[in-house]
Simulated scan of single mutants.
Amino acid sequence: MTEPEGRDDEAVEAAYAQALKLLVRRDHSRRELARKLAERDHPRPAADAALDRLEAEGAQSDRRFAEEYARARFAKGFGPRRVEAELREHGVDGEGLRHAALERDEERRLAADQLAKRFGHTPPADVRERAKRTRYLQQRGFDPEVCAGLLRGGGNPEDEAGF
């Protein structure tokens, strides 16, 4: 009966080594690693044990993955709603999502930067142009209230671009 245990240990070690190789390249969520290990024919119990070990050692962290992923996506001009949806697709929820959030002022600044980058600093000429800019921001994942505030031009000019 010791032989099957030895095989299980070997399977766990193989899954651990494979997951570690993947983590060396970039951070992955636990769900991503589990999927990739399954694609490489590692048995589920062995993969789960390997992932538990990696998490206990601090080599894999959904929180760290969420923070790094969100930072990269925000740098590319995507809003918090889109980033949150993408993180959920990667299997991150709860604690990880809270660490990937933006303050409302940060979101406003990021949205204003995206508007200026895409449309310049000129205000929309008409309702149709305002709707086009609103759709652009919402497709990038910005809150509708932030979009409306920026395009309305009301409020504090430092917080809102006045487009």
Rank of each mutant, 00 (worst) to 15 (best):
L22V: 04
R25N: 13
R26W: 11
S29F: 04
E32F: 07
E32N: 10
R35V: 08
L37I: 07
A38W: 11
D41M: 08
P43S: 08
P45I: 06
A46Y: 00
A49W: 05
D52E: 13
E55G: 08
A56Y: 12
G58N: 02
A59G: 09
A59R: 15
D62Q: 01
R64E: 07
E67C: 13
Y69H: 06
A70Y: 01
R73F: 06
R73T: 06
A75D: 07
G79Q: 00
R81H: 12
V83E: 01
E84T: 07
L87Y: 03
R88L: 04
H90A: 15
G91A: 04
E95Q: 09
G96K: 00
L97C: 02
H99E: 14
A100Q: 00
E103H: 12
R104H: 13
E106V: 07
E107R: 01
R108K: 10
R109P: 03
L110Y: 00
K117A: 15
K117P: 02
R118S: 09
R118V: 10
F119V: 05
G120W: 10
G120M: 12
T122K: 12
P123A: 04
P124D: 00
A125R: 15
A125E: 12
V127S: 15
R128W: 11
R133T: 10
T134S: 14
Y136L: 09
Y136S: 06
L137C: 04
F142C: 06
E145M: 13
V146P: 04
V146T: 09
C147A: 15
